[in-house]
Simulated scan of single mutants.
Amino acid sequence: MSTAVSFPLGASTTLAELARDPHPRLALLRAHEPVSWLPELNGWLVTRRDLGLDVMRDSATFTVDDPRFTTARVVGPSMLSLDGAAHTRHREPFAAPFRPRRVHDNFAAFIERETDRLITALEPAGATELRRAFAGPLAVAVVTDALGLVGTTTDTVLSWYDAIVRSVSDITEGLEAGPAGPAAYAQLRAAVEATVADPHASSLLVSAAGQLDVPEVASNAAVLMFGGIETTEAMITNALLHLLQNPAQLALVQADSGLLDGAVEESLRLEPGAAVVDRYATRDTVLGPAAIRRGDLVSVSLTGANRDPAVFADPDRFDVRRAEARLQLAFAHGPHHCLAAHLARLETRIALQRLLERLPGLRLDPQRPATPYGLVFRKPAALHVLWDAPATNR
């Protein structure tokens, strides 16, 4: 029996729909075809949370180590595209600073300073586009500081990131990636080599170079930068959008800053910055209703899993007091759980708290609406906001 007959909802699902407004279609798939064959994806899409966990936990059956893995095609092998002992060897040299007990001590003061510096520059205007004027620069500054990358600027790092993300997205969508991504990665690799060679440098990159070859340090630096910027820029932008779209929830957070953590988790649940994670079947296997063949692409929809009504009651509602919000899978799960998840959470919490404290009357610009968009990475292209700027002295 053909997959079109077995999975009619998957056969009628388009990538354009999943990029534009995926939630209604994902709900249908989750209810009727929780593991469905999508011809446009040329692979399986998993939308139920329990089945997604099965995939992400079992790296022996569902691996990232495949020549088709998109990020590896741009930056080469790294902790993101390896499994087993090779994955551990690549990941472990970078892990220590991102462990929960060390994140606050290592990064909180820097994040607070950088957040305040960015807001001070914005404050007098009363209006801005926050994704590019605030969220992106903050994420880049923190990643650059965390890696200890020398001799570069925030703008340069952001340009590298933009080019690499564009290449990965193009490949994922079946398009031919242009030369900008590999060119950006070559520049990043040169910066990593310069950092490692600097006798005065003391950084995570230098430390990792004691355990990995320099090209391996560079590829892992790229995925950490890529993940750190993309995840955190999306987290800040999406969380602010959710709060400003829900005045009653915003009022709860403003009355009790202890609810900020819940707001961050709930925003991650509703709109994870990374919508899917890709795996490849290493053997014939059965997952839910699907007979998967060796070599098949198996994509887990984190977006779909995060609105699974079996876990999250009234799943489309934004609720900063939701008790089960921490069960969201925005940072994936299993061996490839996001290395810097705790740092991203800390960064987003500080950013939201400072924005709400320092920009009175912060609100969306009604003339310039914002909507998350993207097949792989989801956030608004722009987030235009207004606030009550301080009166100037006359």
Rank of each mutant, 00 (worst) to 15 (best):
G84W: 11
L327A: 05
V276L: 15
V143M: 15
S299H: 07
L243R: 04
G258H: 13
V276Q: 13
L26K: 00
R307T: 10
E230C: 03
A351N: 08
P97I: 10
T231L: 10
A86C: 06
L240Y: 08
A183S: 14
H337A: 08
R317W: 00
R283P: 06
L250S: 08
A4I: 06
D58H: 06
A218F: 10
H333P: 03
E17G: 13
T152N: 09
T120E: 15
R49D: 01
P309K: 01
A125K: 11
T348L: 05
P289D: 10
G174D: 14
L270M: 05
V206F: 09
T3W: 14
A332N: 11
R48M: 04
D21G: 04
T195C: 11
A251T: 13
T195W: 12
M225I: 15
V150T: 15
E266A: 11
L51P: 03
A263Q: 03
D155H: 12
T282S: 15
A222M: 04
A305H: 01
T282M: 08
A305E: 01
P199Q: 13
R368L: 14
T285R: 07
R101A: 15
V277E: 07
T128M: 01
L355E: 02
G273I: 11
N42A: 15
H104F: 09
A180F: 06
S169V: 14
Q328M: 06
C338R: 11
P372L: 08
R166H: 14
F110A: 06
W160L: 12
G258E: 13
T303L: 14
D83V: 09
L356I: 00
V103D: 09
A291I: 03
T115F: 01
G52N: 04
G151I: 07
V5M: 12
A255P: 01
A163T: 08
R317D: 01
V55E: 11
L259Y: 04
I236G: 06
A389E: 10
T172P: 05
F226G: 11
L118C: 02
P369Y: 03
E173K: 13
L268I: 07
L51E: 02
G10T: 12
D365A: 14
S36K: 00
P199E: 13
A31Q: 13
E33V: 00
L147D: 07
A351M: 05
D284A: 13
F7H: 15
N393M: 08
L383Y: 03
E176R: 15
W37A: 00
A141N: 14
S169M: 09
L252P: 05
H384S: 14
D83F: 06
F331Y: 15
V277W: 07
T3P: 06
R99P: 04
R326Y: 02
A197T: 07
V196F: 10
R101Q: 14
L175I: 08
L149G: 12
V46I: 09
R321D: 00
I350S: 11
L138N: 12
A275V: 14
L53D: 01
L41T: 04
W160R: 13
E266T: 12
G136L: 15
L18A: 02
T282Q: 11
L240N: 09
A330H: 08
L205F: 12
V320K: 00
D65T: 10
W37N: 00
R89E: 11
A133F: 01
V217C: 10
A234D: 14
C338M: 11
H242Y: 06
M56V: 14
Y161C: 10
P272R: 04
Y280D: 07
P8T: 07
R49G: 01
Q353F: 02
S169C: 09
